[in-house]
Design a protein around this nucleic acid. Sequence first.
DNA 1: GTCTATAGAACGATAGAC
DNA 2: GTCTATCGTTCTATAGAC
Lengths: 212, 212
Amino acid sequence: MTTIDAHAAPERRRRGRPRGQDSAVVRDAALRAAVDLIARQGYSATSMTQVAEAAGISPSGLVHHFPSKAALLGAVLAHRDEIDSDPTEPDGRPWAAYDHLVRVAGLNMRRRGLVMLYTSMIGEAFGPEHPAHEWMMRHYSSVLEVLIEGMRADQERGVVRADAPREMIARSVVALMDGLQVQWLIDESLDMEAMMRIHVDALKTIWGVPRS
Amino acid sequence: MTTIDAHAAPERRRRGRPRGQDSAVVRDAALRAAVDLIARQGYSATSMTQVAEAAGISPSGLVHHFPSKAALLGAVLAHRDEIDSDPTEPDGRPWAAYDHLVRVAGLNMRRRGLVMLYTSMIGEAFGPEHPAHEWMMRHYSSVLEVLIEGMRADQERGVVRADAPREMIARSVVALMDGLQVQWLIDESLDMEAMMRIHVDALKTIWGVPRS
DNA sequence: GTCTATAGAACGATAGAC
DNA sequence: GTCTATCGTTCTATAGAC
């Protein structure tokens, strides 16, 4: 239904207003509260009132910073993407994108909130009318594109077999990652990173071109 | 919070009440409406009023059959488990449980509603206070147990290598299945069954004991 | 067994004082 | 920029007529 632009943070640089809380601080507290609650309960089950309470402001105060619930979700997702953004410049090594995904799996084992937010989002956003639907579609196509394009480059350079089914491999690895995160949320003793590592290493063995 | 016993369907065998709709028929219509709506929107986003409307009865009529929203969800999940139940008697063939999972993947490609219901449930039920939390925990432990136990038997009979890491393999396959279902919901052209087949076949190659 | 009527609370959002 | 006050809706659930 509605597209969610994250309200384009006012970003006013505190021009000598001595009274009251700094706006950016309050906004940030509200955003953190929203991330936490939406991660634990999902978007539908979380109310503006709950978020306001957790942030220590009134519901109306919250509305001032985020004019609607969907706008709040937009900011939450933008925040998530920022944390999860890839600081890795694409080095030219083979399987770089896949190795990166393995590292992300390891990182995620120390970011439970992020994994919960992601998983609950995936679970409720596949309906086209959900305010996070477009975010989810963009997320998948972007992740898959990085993996597929990376492998295409590797094939061009002759380090990966030319007959490797790029899309299928990429989709399998993403599926494995998503599914492991669900199980990890249930049982944190599961070593996502190790399991991803094993899977990716197996891919390298099967589809890699041995160095001559 | 609340445990959800599915209200133990009254099952009264229409003892000569000529007037009005048959109770079981109405109950069934309500259940179907609930399955459809909860699958598409998730549990939290679905209201009793919506379900009643879709079933063609009043909200109070719905409450008569399912005294609370949680009870309705309980019935929905029981219905799901029934449809999804495994009619396969455990034949003694190696990898039987894994082959079965591949077949289920193929079946699911013709049961979109079931996949949606499952996926949205997983996404919102990992919080311990969610009324479907226990269902989800039972689901995972049961699926994993079947796979792990099946492989243990195969190892005992010497058709699977004794050093195969049962739990890790089972968890990977379940994770792959769950993740593929999400992607399939987004793009139905994805062949879940084929991808599961390939993965399981690879497992057989790696961990199977070649016939002498 | 299904309905109308309604309780009682929580919802998202708006208006306007300060 | 944050608040109080409140609108209009929707929610789950109950009580009782038929």
